[in-house]
Design a protein around this nucleic acid. Structure first.
Length: 357
DNA sequence: ATTGCTGAATGG
């Protein structure tokens, strides 16, 4: 174990700008993989050539299935699925049913700024991902490298995390983790930088949304380092083969980091060893708001993790996803959100406009 | 080809 740690440390220290992997699919995944939830018209050249008189029809998706089953079957909910739902459940529903609206200029600027911040500490390396197993292997490797960077250099960005919250698999990317200066504390602080188009202070709804996001990350990080990662459940839930042989491309990427792995299970072992060495995160979380125009600081918002508030929020969001109830509309005080929503014209909350006496 | 499907987040 000491050897593994030494190897990791050496690798991370040597490769000054830490390596990460940009997952880019060269080709669609193998034809019969369970990816196409909505098996549409796309070319499904799966073995059997002709469709005979009584082909094994794809199971028609029964109505009344939960959104979780329909849109996130055998997949994890993203942390941003949680926050998008908290923002407006009806809008989340529209996005699932009708697809994402076009990205705004503000969103593009935000993405660019985040890429810039990431580049300050991370060098991206492209690897081709051919399967779900390889996707997870890369996620684990990026976690290992990022966590080691945090401990050695005091900071890391865009760190992937995953785990189970209130019974549901979740996945997310921590914007930033930073060790406190000196020996003040051994516990890293979670930070999220929000860029703003206008120099106005963030609304309460935005801050609440950001709090929820950061609490998701803290929960996932603390659970990973607490070594509660349910490996057996992980492989079966995502239908992964632990013994899947990684491609030479991926193996080479792993070797760049001083490790040697042939299978996804090998990678998971390194991951577990790394998790054992990491400290819990601080109870204090930080949202940092900056102006897109000049990156000037608009507000720094420090707040505390609140386990019971967090649990309630997650349960509320999950009850929507699980179909326990219909989507809720925004509250009267937050009706202003509708003016930013692409689906406002089709939304029942605005039913008065279309039908007049 | 930044968003789609099948990356998670981007902002309000």
């Amino acid at each position: 174990m000491a050897l593994i740690e030494a190897a990791l440390s050496a690798a991370v220290a040597a490769a000054r700008p830490v390596l990460s992997a940009a997952a880019r699919r060269a080709a669609p995944l193998s034809c019969c993989a369970s990816y196409s939830a909505a098996a549409s018209s796309s070319s499904f050249s799966c073995g059997s050539g002709d469709i005979e008189d009584s082909p094994p029809l794809p199971i028609p998706t029964p109505r009344g299935q939960s959104l979780l089953a329909r849109f996130r079957g055998r997949r994890a909910l993203a942390v941003t699925d949680i926050t998008a739902t908290e923002w407006c459940e009806k809008q989340m529903e529209f996005v699932l049913e009708h697809g994402r609206p076009e990205r705004t200029q503000a969103m593009k600027a935000g993405s660019e700024r985040h890429a810039q911040l990431e580049q300050e500490v991370i060098e991206r390396v492209d690897v081709t991902i051919r399967s779900a197993e390889e996707m997870w292997a890369v996620k684990f490797m990026n976690f290992i490298v990022g966590a080691n960077q945090l401990m050695l250099e005091g900071i890391t960005r865009e760190l992937p995390v995953f785990g189970v919250i209130e019974g549901s698999w979740m996945i997310g990317v921590i914007d930033e983790l930073q060790m406190p200066p000196d020996g003040v504390s051994l516990h890293p602080i979670l930070v999220d930088t929000k860029t703003r188009y206008k120099p106005t202070p963030p609304s309460e709804a935005q801050k609440r949304n950001g709090r929820l996001q950061l609490m998701c990350y803290k929960y996932l990080w603390d659970n990973l380092i607490g070594e509660k990662f349910p490996a057996e459940n992980f492989f079966s839930y995502f239908d992964l083969d632990p013994n899947y042989l990684l491609s030479d491309d991926i193996k080479q990427f792993i070797r760049l980091l001083g490790l040697d792995a042939k299978t996804l299970e090998d990678v998971l072992k390194y991951f577990k060893v790394t998790c054992h060495t990491l400290p819990r995160s601080q109870e204090q979380l930080l949202l940092r708001y900056e102006l897109q125009a000049d990156h000037s600081l608009l507000e720094e918002y420090l707040f505390s993790y609140d386990a019971s508030w967090f649990k309630d929020q997650i349960q509320e969001v999950l009850s929507f996803w699980q179909g326990a109830r219909d989507a809720k509309f925004v509250s009267e005080e937050e009706r202003w959100k509708c003016s930013f929503c692409k689906f406002a014209n089709n939304c029942p909350i605005n039913a008065s406009s279309s039908r007049c006496c």
